[in-house]
């Protein structure tokens, strides 16, 4: 199954379970969780079922296009359901079968892996789902988001699409994946991975990025003052990405690290509180 077909199959599968099919957010995120559909959607009492693809950028994971599974940008497929259905594990496993996996021939383990995001002041309990000991998904029951205890809780399924595709296509490296019947994953991404690795590890202008961080932080705060939580959240995301670049550049000492994270966390918390303060209108269409 081609890479692009996996996305289409998952869209189709989760549409069948009542999910709203959305699109990647158009600002850099480190994970699908940062997409406003999840960040705001998990807050408040309203039911939610949503699924989308999220290209996730993690500068420190860059390997110059040489590591078969570790990538600076990988593709997450994210599903969030609130409240969690009682058969959610079976639904998830069905979705893998839907992709053509014969799970009876593999080793599937739900291995403890609780999730925590200090920048989002969020945590949850769950697993990394391992297929033949390769982590292919993260499965999390969110308990808190932006410091707010969730009631009802949400469950988040995050599929690592490259790894799943590698199993399905039986290849040893993500770069050897077929994107479609003509184009290989490597053709699309290898040079980008190389360039961004050089950029993130060696070339990004530390001082300029630090200034950009401060500017984005100020813009976020100003938007919050104006009661504009969605623009404010966009700038929170930018801060988070800029921080990740500085981190990859080793431009942040351990002492500073905590304070950078705390600054982003304060922005995220303020966005969430602002959102709930306005009655949580129009964060994300719910079903």
């Amino acid at each position: 199954m081609d890479f692009q077909d996996i996305v289409l199959r998952l869209h189709n599968f989760w549409r069948g379970h009542g999910c709203l099919i959305l699109h990647p957010y158009d600002i850099e995120t480190g994970a699908g969780t940062f997409n406003p559909a999840t960040f705001f959607g998990t807050l408040g009492p309203d039911a939610l079922r949503v699924a989308y693809l999220e290209p996730s950028r993690r500068p420190t994971d860059g390997r110059y296009g040489t590591n078969p599974i570790r990538l600076r940008l990988h593709h997450q497929y994210q599903t969030v359901l609130k409240p969690p259905p009682t058969n959610i594990q079976e639904m998830y496993l069905d979705s893998l079968e839907e992709l053509g996996m014969n799970l009876a021939e593999h080793d599937v383990k739900f291995a403890e892996d609780d999730w925590e995001s200090p920048t989002l002041a969020a945590w949850g309990v769950g697993w990394q789902v391992c297929l033949d000991e390769m982590e292919i998904s993260q499965f999390t029951y969110f308990q808190q988001m932006a410091g707010i205890t969730l009631d009802p809780v949400s469950v988040e399924l995050t599929y690592g699409l490259e790894r799943i595709a590698m199993v399905l296509q039986g290849v040893e490296s993500a770069y050897d994946l077929r994107w479609n019947d003509r184009i290989a994953y490597g053709t699309l991404w290898r040079e980008k991975e190389r360039q961004f690795s050089v950029y993130n590890f060696e070339s990004a202008a530390v001082e300029r990025i630090q200034k950009m961080f401060t500017l984005c932080e100020e813009e976020c705060q100003a938007s919050l003052v104006a009661g504009l939580v969605f623009p404010a959240y966009d700038y929170t995301l930018k801060c988070s990405h800029l921080f990740n670049i500085l981190d990859a550049r080793h431009a942040i000492s351990i002492t500073e690290r905590e304070s950078f994270i705390a600054r982003i966390r304060e922005l995220a918390k303020a966005c969430a509180q602002g959102y709930l303060g306005t009655g949580g209108i129009d964060a994300c269409p719910t079903t």
Binding site: T66, A104, E105, H106, D107, V108, E133, M134
Partner: peptide
């Protein structure tokens, strides 16, 4: 250790070796 029955087709073994290879490269 697989959770399940013997891996007759060697699928799990190939998967394990692939993971180990990638991690060692890391």
């Amino acid at each position: 250790f697989r959770d399940g029955m013997p891996d007759k087709k060697g699928i799990v073994r190939a998967g394990y070796e692939r993971v180990v290879q990638a991690r060692l490269r890391d």
